[in-house]
């Protein structure tokens, strides 16, 4: 029995030692907001936060999550109130097909948690492992910058 905390909730689930966090989230816990585009750590679609740091769920084994706090896209909003990053992604069209969005949001959240006032180059570097084929990244970088301003204003 694996005990893990996801988005503040404790889950107990059976999981094979060979199941990755990606499979556990999507297939055991029904949290399908985390996507997959390669399953070998090359696309960033399955990025989640493990104790606040972005990792690729497709390459995380059960042993690494025992006792850790996992944050997925489903855990970003506060009830029905969107996280400022989500608000900015919505407003600026930073999510088109939406398939990379979960991973983008979580990589961006980790950046802003650590660096509240990033430059555009820092934003680009933080998102460099998350492939997006729709946006050309410009609106995503804008959205992260806008969310940073919103969050700073709230401080």
């Amino acid at each position: 029995m694996l005990r893990l905390r996801v988005n503040g909730e404790t889950h107990e689930t059976l999981a094979e030692s060979s199941e990755t966090l990606l499979e556990i989230l999507r297939e055991r816990l029904g949290l399908t907001g985390t996507k997959h585009g390669c399953e070998v750590g090359e696309c960033g679609a399955c990025t989640v936060l493990l104790d606040g740091a972005p990792v690729l769920a497709c390459l995380v084994l059960p042993d690494q999550i025992e006792g850790a706090e996992v944050t997925t896209v489903e855990g970003l909003a506060d009830g029905s109130a969107l996280h400022p990053l989500q608000e900015a992604f919505v407003a600026l069209g930073a999510s088109q097909c939406g398939y990379c969005t979960a991973g983008m949001l979580l990589s961006a959240k980790a950046l802003l948690d650590e660096q509240p006032d990033p430059t555009r180059d820092e934003i680009r570097a933080a998102l460099a492992g998350n492939v997006c084929r729709c946006t050309g990244y410009a609106s995503i970088v804008d959205a992260v910058a806008q969310a940073a301003r919103t969050l700073q204003g709230a401080r």
Binding site: R26, L31, T32, G33, T34, K35, H36, T72, V73, E74, L76, A77, L82, Q86, F89, V90, A91, G93, S95, Q96, G98, Y99, T101, A102, L105
Partner: peptide, 19 residues
């Protein structure tokens, strides 16, 4: 204006084929 499905997409609730 935002896309009509933007909120679903940023909250991970959009159900894609493999979901």
């Amino acid at each position: 204006m935002p896309r009509v499905d933007a909120v679903a997409k940023v909250t991970g609730t959009t159900v894609y084929a493999d979901d």
